[in-house]
Write a protein that binds this DNA or RNA. Structure first.
Lengths: 210, 210
DNA sequence: AATTAATTAGACGATCGGTCTATTATATTG
DNA sequence: CAATATAATAGACCGATCGTCTAATTAATT
């Protein structure tokens, strides 16, 4: 059952109405799909527009440039993903390391759901960062840092619970986690299965200092 | 001191001459630079041609299509890299695990030499494999396997020398190595330093079963 | 001399790129 | 109520780029 896309009217929208579509949000959603699958520099805006039936003029009404659009998509995805991370990593019904494993399990099924055609937007963009507008670099770095901090906090909890050695450097381990994570997720595009993630995560966990 | 590029003559080259340029090889070299920095689908052939001053007609003389060219570049790079791996991993003046570390050191300086603008061609292409001609997928997978086998052989040697636990699964460990390696190399584009590789490799080594 | 082989040169025509002007419709103001 | 401002859609714009292909050129071979 597909949701019917209403034909957009021209002109200023009426003041009190409940059925106006959120064109901006649809563009960001469509952009997320496209950029996640095909990257930024290899993606024109046409496929993004076509997916939600929005003309180019509307695009430039909502976003001053492709660059501004890209930043909006990154922001949207970073927030969504951080929220997802929190859902798992702050779930007090599990011990700290299990929380990480639960996140990994959920992420795996998400990747499979999209037939491994999507990786992680931030990882993808990080790979092509030299081709992107320079404004992207600090944003991408910052997103990675926020994610790393979340895993580091979780590892700190594992330390406090003696599931991890007291001498473990949680900051470095968190960075290590995301480095391997991005490498594994990237590999799933090639293998089209979860083997790389399984292998990587198994070794990550067994290699943790205890 | 730059090597002067001779202006190519038209027509069939003379039979006995020592100063004919190898246009095909130059195209492959230029393609390697371009594809490594910018990927396949985001790269047109114009910049590749411009770098070595070869007109398009010559390109299509030597390669039947952009796809065929891409495969030639992959083949060239895979051979070059395999040779480099062998140089280090078969160097009997060092113990097995040190050989891996020596390869890592050399690779790090190579990445720095290119200001971290190049990653690993195969890793880069693997990331955008869904955008590539379908012929690329099995080739890329095969290249990874040959690299993995080299590391696995080295780890087997470490096992034989009791530097590694006898129960270690060298095949899985070798896959793990390359997964993390590609993740780390990718991350260096963002950080523009070797920190990701240092961190990853430190944890890879300390996490090896002994 | 005619034919074949090997290489360079850039035209071709379609597509795509990001951007911008024009149009439309409603709200707000005097 | 008319004029103005605001908010949104529509698609033209024009330059660049794309991969491909035909034409031209030169040497070797028959």
């Amino acid at each position: 059952m597909t949701i019917e896309i209403t034909k957009p009217r021209r002109g200023r929208p009426p003041k009190n109405t409940t059925d106006n579509r959120d064109t901006r949000a649809e563009l960001i959603r469509s952009g997320l799909e496209q950029l996640t699958e095909s990257g930024f520099s290899a993606s024109g805006i046409d496929p993004i527009l076509k997916k939600v039936g929005v003309p180019k003029g509307s695009f430039y009404h909502y976003f001053s440039s492709k660059e501004a659009f890209g930043l909006a998509v990154i922001d949207s995805y970073a927030n969504y993903f951080a929220h997802k991370l929190d859902t798992y990593l702050l779930d007090e019904s599990y011990p700290a390391l299990t929380r990480i494993a639960n996140f990994v399990e959920d992420a795996k099924s998400g990747l499979a759901y999209h037939h491994f055609k999507r990786g992680c937007l931030i990882g993808n963009l990080g790979q092509e960062v030299d081709l992107l507008p320079e404004s992207f670099r600090p944003i991408l770095s910052h997103v990675f840092i926020t994610w790393q901090n979340r895993i580091a906090d979780c590892l700190e909890l594992a330390k406090a619970n003696h599931d991890l050695s007291q001498s473990a450097n949680t900051e470095k381990l968190a960075e290590y986690f995301w480095i391997g994570w991005e490498g594994a997720v990237s590999r799933t595009r090639l293998t089209q299965n979860t083997t790389p993630i399984d292998n990587y995560f198994h070794h990550f966990m067994t290699g943790l200092p205890r």
